[in-house]
Design a protein around this nucleic acid. Sequence first.
DNA 1: ACCTACATTGACGTTAACGTAAACGTAAAC
DNA 2: GTTTACGTTTACGTTAACGTCAATGTAGGT
Lengths: 145, 145
Amino acid sequence: MTAAVSAVPSEPRDPQRIYSIAELAREFAITARTIRFYEDEGLIKPRRQGLTRLYTAGDRTRLGWILRGKRLGFSLAEIKELLDLYQVDRTGVSQLRELLRRSREHIEDLQRKRRDLDAHIKEFEDVEIQVAAELKKRGAETGND
Amino acid sequence: MTAAVSAVPSEPRDPQRIYSIAELAREFAITARTIRFYEDEGLIKPRRQGLTRLYTAGDRTRLGWILRGKRLGFSLAEIKELLDLYQVDRTGVSQLRELLRRSREHIEDLQRKRRDLDAHIKEFEDVEIQVAAELKKRGAETGND
DNA sequence: ACCTACATTGACGTTAACGTAAACGTAAAC
DNA sequence: GTTTACGTTTACGTTAACGTCAATGTAGGT
């Protein structure tokens, strides 16, 4: 999970570009198998040229979104739901109402998560401060080079 | 994963209290099996009275910490590492240095996660705004009761 | 025509994180 | 004294999220 800053998701890309599966795999530091698996699960639907998969800039963005969701601890099933939220037809008023309700729900969920995260960060910052102080007391450098 | 605000982790508790496994399970909305599993994995080590497990307020806090970590998308292995970080002996200077390094590393990881989270929230807030506007345009109430 | 690099589809294996069932101990309640 | 409620261990089952072959296709270079 906690990989060392591998994915390089944002460069000035032209929206016409087409990506191969290996390209996307490299860029996001995942395997092609993973991307195909996401397709099996209905998370992405690339065009085909014969059998070969062709990914648009939109597909690439979508993939990035999926991976970000994963990093935040959502399951693929949850991520699929959220992606489908965008895709849903917005013709009917009842659909719009539902969409609004769901996205508010999700925002609350994210905000809960944010509170958890902030609490977590605060604790570790406390550790850092105290340990740094202890080191200083012992006359050692704290590692700020 | 995304349960509906179930755990009620903070009440004015006295630090002398002892908890049964079922009590903690109820409070955190998990099963006893899960708690025992965490013990097998070395995440908590309750006292025993014969065979029966007795949990202190510290154990309870620890359990809450574990579950928060899970909500944030950390694996149990990662959580164990982080918990052990606190437990490590802080006698030697080299241990302190290592502890400092690790906790800084972890803070950076959490901050990355926070950026992910903020981006996610922003996107959904945009959806909310636009959908609400669309609904208003159509003369329907937006659902703010 | 052949090699090489990269693509494809199955199909089975694997790991993490528990669930579930069996078989049993213990202590209070009826 | 036996039901009820809770606890225990042991062990096998399950689901999600991929990994790992194996067999095969395809496009480009020499």
